[in-house]
Design a protein around this nucleic acid. Structure first.
Length: 209
DNA sequence: TAGTTACA
DNA sequence: CGGA
């Protein structure tokens, strides 16, 4: 982190933290490792249970991957496209996520699932809960790389007051505890170009499945 | 409802 | 809301 990016962690809701620019130094290495994951398990548009395509492109690494199709949301150990195991979570990412979780008050976080979501301009993510994990005491750690986005943070229902947080390259979010089931999403991605990712936002979300 | 659209 |  350079002296110009000195803002520290921000607790924007109970147990929910934004770590601005936390991962910018490791970004190139993490993205290189994720590029290799995506070579082995290609990006695809998941279908929602209502059989509508998501606008983001997705893949996974880890012992389990989050998938969605007409049968619903779930974690599974193999890529439905290939029936092969997902690639390993890159160790640089796994180690950092554990450290980040500890900083936010969630010690001994050992994620076994990393969802890779790639946003092109126009892609978005509607308000949803992360609730397909078996142990909701474990937090969610989410990395943003490349193009900026606006994160929408709601309460335990979709309605009501929402916060909007800017997410820039290298920012990391952690939420758990009382905030673990809060609805959240991403506004439609605005056009732009980033030196490391071109016209792309890369989001990596680590969880214990 | 991790989806889209209509309309005030 | 409504298609699957």
């Amino acid at each position: 982190m350079s002296l110009l990016d000195a803002s520290g962690p921000i607790e924007f809701a109970p147990g929910a933290w934004l770590l601005p620019n936390h991962a910018s130094e490791q970004a190139a290495d993490i993205l290189a490792a994720i590029r290799e994951c995506v070579r082995q398990a290609p990006l695809r548009h998941f279908m929602t249970p209502g059989n509508k395509p998501m606008s983001v492109l997705s893949s996974n690494c880890g012992d389990f991957g989050w998938v969605s199709d007409s049968k619903g949301y779930r974690y599974q150990a193999t890529d439905p496209k290939s029936d092969k195991p997902w690639p390993d979570i890159p160790s640089i990412l796994l180690n950092d996520a554990t450290q980040v979780a500890e900083q936010a008050g969630y010690p001994e976080f050992l994620p076994n699932a990393c969802l890779i979501n790639v946003y092109k301009p126009g892609a978005k993510m509607g308000l949803h809960q992360d609730r397909d994990e078996s142990d909701l005491n474990e937090p969610v750690v989410s990395y943003s790389f490349g193009l900026p986005a606006r994160f929408i943070w709601a309460g335990q229902t979709r309605t009501g007051t929402k916060q909007r947080l800017p997410l820039n390259h290298g920012d990391v979010l952690v939420w758990g505890g009382p905030s673990r089931l809060n609805y959240h999403g991403i506004d439609k991605l605005v056009e732009g170009t980033h030196p490391l990712t071109q016209q792309t936002r890369v989001n990596l979300t680590l969880r214990k499945a």
